[in-house]
């Protein structure tokens, strides 16, 4: 645990007069599960969008493997093995699960056909199905539009997509919000499996029991700032809620 694989320093971001982030810090290490918690509007999703390259910060620094980097586009993050399940899932509803999984990274046919834009559709289908079944995703219809699927299925598709491509860091912004008990357990197991591969996992969740169950460290965000970092082993729900709401002000500032 020397250098964090991914680190954010003093990030700020405003939307008009709303200051979503005001000097937020954040860090994750390889093979670690960190939870990011905070009240509604604390700035969690904003931080995730910035660290995924989907949005630009107004100020602050982002370091990958200790090196400062600029994320102009989501591709800049993805090319470094950083994947994200966004809170709004970011799926194309008219496309099927396989098409969504490979969108932006289509497998092209070799040679002239590939140059003409033809894709390896059966290869994508087979590989995609394998990735979904590894997750234990409850997706059965691989050729129907995801817009016609249940909220939980859509969430599982978004998680499977990110998990399939992540190699360094994966952000999961409330990945279990719409899931049933069994599927939630599936995602929790998946999170551990991803961690076991040495990938840094960042879980955003409002469920304190889940957070304490799965995470190594818990980062608490309040009013756009990280107000506490705690070892999950040495904390409890009361303490986390206290930090989130400000009842424990001054205990630990990061």
């Amino acid at each position: 645990m020397t250098t964090p694989i991914y680190e954010a320093r003093d990030i700020s971001r405003s939307y008009g007069s709303v200051r979503a982030l005001e000097g937020a810090n954040f860090d994750v290490y390889p093979g670690e599960i960190s939870a990011l918690i905070g009240d509604n509007g604390a700035g969690k999703s904003t931080l995730v969008r910035i660290l995924s390259g989907a949005e630009q910060p107004n100020g602050g620094q982002i370091l990958f493997n200790g090196e400062p980097i600029q994320l102009e586009t989501p591709t800049d993050a993805r090319s470094r093995g950083i994947e994200t399940v966004f809170q709004d899932l970011a799926l194309a509803n008219h496309l099927d699960p396989i098409q969504n999984m490979y969108l932006g990274r289509e497998l092209m046919k070799p040679g002239v056909m590939g140059a003409l834009g033809f894709m390896q559709r059966s290869a994508m289908k087979n590989e995609g199905k394998r990735a979904f079944s590894e997750l234990g995703a409850t997706v059965r219809n691989f050729s129907g539009p995801v817009g016609g699927m249940s909220g939980g299925q859509r969430q599982a598709i978004a998680v499977a997509r990110a998990a399939a491509w992540a190699s360094e860091v994966i952000f999961l912004d409330e990945p279990t919000a719409a899931l049933g008990v069994v599927q939630t357990k599936g995602v929790m197991d998946l999170i551990r499996r991803i961690r076991d591969k040495g990938i840094a996992v960042v879980l955003i969740s409002h469920s304190m029991p889940h957070v304490l169950d799965v995470a190594d460290r818990v980062h608490v965000l309040r009013h756009g700032k990280r107000v506490a970092v705690m070892e999950a082993k040495h904390t409890n729900v009361e303490e986390l809620v206290g930090a989130m709401t400000g009842a424990l002000d001054g205990k630990e500032a990061a």
């Binding site: 993805r78 194309a92 509803n93 008219h94 033809f118």
Partner: peptide, 21 residues
């Protein structure tokens, strides 16, 4: 083709397309 897939994807959810680069 990829051109066709991305045409549908852009019409379906442009923001999702941006997020996948």
């Amino acid at each position: 083709t990829r051109f066709g897939l991305r045409t549908s994807a852009v019409g379906s959810n442009a923001e999702a397309c941006r997020r996948v680069g």
